[in-house]
Amino acid sequence: MSYIQINNLTKDYGDGRGIFDLNLEIEKGEVFGFVGTNGAGKTTTIRHMMGFLKPQNGTVTINGMNGWTDAAEIKKLIGYIPGEIAFPDAPTGTEFLKRQAELLGLTDMSYAESIIKMLQLDPTANLKRMSKGMKQKTAIVAALMADPDILILDEPTTGLDPLMRAEFVKLLNEEKRKGKTIFMSSHMFEEVEHTCDKVALIKGGKLIAVKRTSEVRRSENKQYKIEFITHADYVRFLSEPFKITTKRDNQNQVFIQINDADINLLFRTLTGYPIKFIKEIKYTLESYFKGIYEEDKVHA
């Protein structure tokens, strides 16, 4: 059995809202991304994993324990960043982190200090008056400082500026090297592409696709953007046997999708054309999932 197993998980709030027959498997030491737009069901899934919600149907199992009946035991393994951060009454970030450490039985704060430094957080600030970014950093420190086996992160970089996002990705990759099991929801494809082993796409509470990020990076299908010097050559190329995805008549540009096996044919063909430039458009997780998302719309 997988380290984290979600079987037929359903929570129907009515009007098509909720999650429906969700099935996911996360292996020990795997970093798993969970992407989708706001309202897709990411937080509802995570609340079930944390034992905050009781499933209407289906189960969540973590390390062989039931997500609902064994919630207290499971929480001892987990560092959690909620999507909506609401701190208890504590005068400062330092005081809040100290109380969290006491609850966790943590006496060595050296790892917490290193994360504070990395995220450039001033924990002595008044907790209630902290900016969204400062609160987010404080929540990250609280989730990671006891070095838990599992990290469950709901949109963990909300409110962080691009520089701090990059630092967080570094931090996450460090946790990954330690062998942590990480489940992270996000609406930012780039973030999950740089950290996750596998990514699942959820839409309208239903799982649309699960993909290994390495497969996307090594995809045999490539996209090229080509611009021709003359309009006549551009028009002539349109009748060549390649899959053209976009045409830009005014700029004499075409975008083509091509399999690795046909790359030599493309370049042989292009020797007969004076071209201004050719550029490979990198195939990303975002382009992969966007294609699936659009396809799903057509069939819905």
Rank of each mutant, 00 (worst) to 15 (best):
Met1Thr: 07
Ile4Val: 15
Lys11Ala: 12
Lys11Gln: 15
Leu24Gln: 03
Gly29Arg: 05
Gly29Lys: 06
Gly29Val: 06
Val31Trp: 03
Val31Ile: 13
Phe32Gln: 07
Thr37Phe: 13
Asn38Trp: 09
Ala40His: 04
Ala40Asp: 06
Lys42Gln: 10
Lys42Thr: 11
Thr43Val: 11
Ile46Leu: 14
Gly51Val: 12
Gly51Ala: 14
Leu53Ser: 13
Pro55Phe: 03
Val60Arg: 02
Thr61Cys: 03
Met65Thr: 00
Met65Tyr: 05
Asn66Tyr: 05
Asn66Val: 05
Asn66Cys: 04
Trp68Phe: 07
Glu73Tyr: 03
Glu73Val: 04
Lys75Asp: 01
Leu77Ser: 14
Gly79Trp: 03
Glu84Leu: 02
Ala86Val: 12
Phe87Cys: 02
Asp89Val: 11
Ala90Asp: 11
Ala90Asn: 14
Ala90Pro: 01
Thr92Asp: 05
Gln100Trp: 11
Glu102Val: 11
Leu103Asp: 05
Leu103His: 08
Gly105Tyr: 10
Leu106Cys: 11
Ile115Glu: 10
Met118Ala: 12
Thr124Met: 04
Thr124Glu: 14
Leu127Gly: 07
Arg129Glu: 14
Met134Phe: 15
Lys135Ala: 13
Lys137Phe: 06
Val141Gly: 09
Ala142Thr: 03
Leu144Ile: 01
Ala146Trp: 05
Asp149Gly: 00
Leu153Glu: 00
Leu160Trp: 03
Met164Cys: 05
Lys170Cys: 12
Asn173Ala: 11
Arg177Gln: 15
Lys180Glu: 10
Lys180Val: 13
Lys180Phe: 13
Ser185Lys: 09
Ser186Cys: 01
His187Asp: 00
Glu190Phe: 00
Val192His: 06
Glu193Ala: 13
Thr195Ser: 09
Val199Phe: 02
Lys203Asn: 11
Lys211His: 10
Arg212Asn: 15
Arg212Gln: 14
Ser214Val: 05
Val216Asn: 08
Arg218Asp: 15
Arg218Tyr: 01
Glu220Ile: 10
Glu220Leu: 10
Asn221Gly: 06
Ile226Phe: 08
Glu227Thr: 15
Ala232Ile: 07
Tyr234Cys: 04
Val235Phe: 04
Leu238Glu: 07
Ser239Ile: 12
Lys243Ser: 14
Ile244Met: 09
Arg248Glu: 15
Gln251Pro: 02
Gln253Gly: 13
Gln257Arg: 07
Gln257Tyr: 01
Asp262Ile: 02
Ile263Phe: 00
Arg268Thr: 00
Arg268Gln: 01
Arg268Asp: 04
Leu270Cys: 10
Thr271Met: 12
Thr271His: 06
Glu280Ile: 03
Glu280Arg: 06
Tyr283Pro: 00
Tyr283Arg: 10
Leu285Pro: 04
Glu286Asn: 06
Phe289Arg: 06
Tyr293Ala: 01
His299Glu: 02
His299Tyr: 02
